[in-house]
Design a protein around this nucleic acid. Sequence first.
DNA 1: GCACTGGACCTGTATAGACAAGCTCGGTGC
DNA 2: GCACCGAGCTTGTCTATACAGGTCCAGTGC
Lengths: 240, 240
Amino acid sequence: MSLHAAAARYLQVKHFILEQIAGGALPAGARVPSENELTRTLAISRMTANRALRELAADGVLVRVAGVGTFVAEQRVHAHPLEVRNIADEIRARGHEHRLKVLTLEPVSATRELAERCGVKLGATLDHSLITHFEDGTPLQLEERYVNPQVAPGYLHNDFARTTPHEFLIRVAPLQRAEHTVRALLPERRIRRLLKLKSGEACLLILRRTFSNGRVASVADLYHPGSRYELTATCQPRSS
Amino acid sequence: MSLHAAAARYLQVKHFILEQIAGGALPAGARVPSENELTRTLAISRMTANRALRELAADGVLVRVAGVGTFVAEQRVHAHPLEVRNIADEIRARGHEHRLKVLTLEPVSATRELAERCGVKLGATLDHSLITHFEDGTPLQLEERYVNPQVAPGYLHNDFARTTPHEFLIRVAPLQRAEHTVRALLPERRIRRLLKLKSGEACLLILRRTFSNGRVASVADLYHPGSRYELTATCQPRSS
DNA sequence: GCACTGGACCTGTATAGACAAGCTCGGTGC
DNA sequence: GCACCGAGCTTGTCTATACAGGTCCAGTGC
């Protein structure tokens, strides 16, 4: 088995489970096939099934009870401890209407810089999307995203009107870690036009990398109008 | 083997490694025994060693490189998980020289906006400082700070050449919480001059509020040149 | 009817052995 | 001297098997 041509077996099992959850075949609380069932139906060894289920449980997707079985966890999105901001949630939390517009959606070949950011080989295929997010009709984010189809398959076929890129990704590729870099810049014309910025208006750029299973799931450049958007964070030390 | 009386074998292996790291026997970058070595020295199977090392790598404690070995990760998370950046430490961590220049240092009377931010009454006295921080002679931060003398007394008499504002504050008023807001803007002339910005260069502004004993210790506006500074943060969920 | 018990099934963990693929380094051939 | 190649190490993954302990339920004995 090649490690590059196909994903590792236990990852396939994880995706197999995740797809059933995403497709609604396994609603929250539903029982997931046991290790022995997976062993039989997927023709894998129990250790492989065990690793897949164990990692999904560690990601919070599943809940395992010794002696009883494995079940789909409730409230997947909500319980997530990662403070990764989702522009759609932010807008809705303020009581405003969120809409998005897909400008580009296509596979691309990784340039040298992209390959490095995504941890893939030069020329590898990445799913690329360019999407603008609107709050009550005003553009609030320009999202340029590259997704590694090896880690999060099916991105190009997602229905973005129903599932935002962020929502799709945390469902398909359980979030492990996120890296953020924040910059301020005067945007080039293309970005200025898409965000309807006044000339001379600064732009907040958030470079985000999300990791799943130790690999980069996606990298995103998030452009925000400097006059209409700010980032907030509260740091609090753990007790003890 | 009881699952309750003694920890699982792979957990023992994890602790074995962690103790050596904590004890200094394995400094950052040091090579960790390979799976085969652990198999021999600890009389365990390779899968057990593999799981211990794999999970420690997932936690960010170790870094594994296929075909090379396993190493102690750099930058172990500090004991204090508060991610409050100190520009002086940042600069020194990069191996550069930090210098600062105090432009203003005087008590002021709180305006309405300031009073609100600091949680004091209108007209209350606040200690005000305006300081520029240099990296190898290049300005990297303009720090405008207001300190509540009720919470952190003695700020105006600090020797800033020896103790930076941040260092003074965490010593005098133990840090409880920090709030950050990040904005991008095109700075006014005064700031542009002090940071030696090119006209048309964007500026990263960090608004910070630090709390001590439930009260605001200080508020600071931190201006950074957009072309020379960026903010980075990594979010990681708790290991399960 | 009720308490108990044993079997079936589940997860959790451990072992031994195997192959693939990446990296390093030393030796070989030119 | 330099390029090349393979041995030997590493991690990454998979299989087959095993035992322990938790949970549930049906069947048994009273």
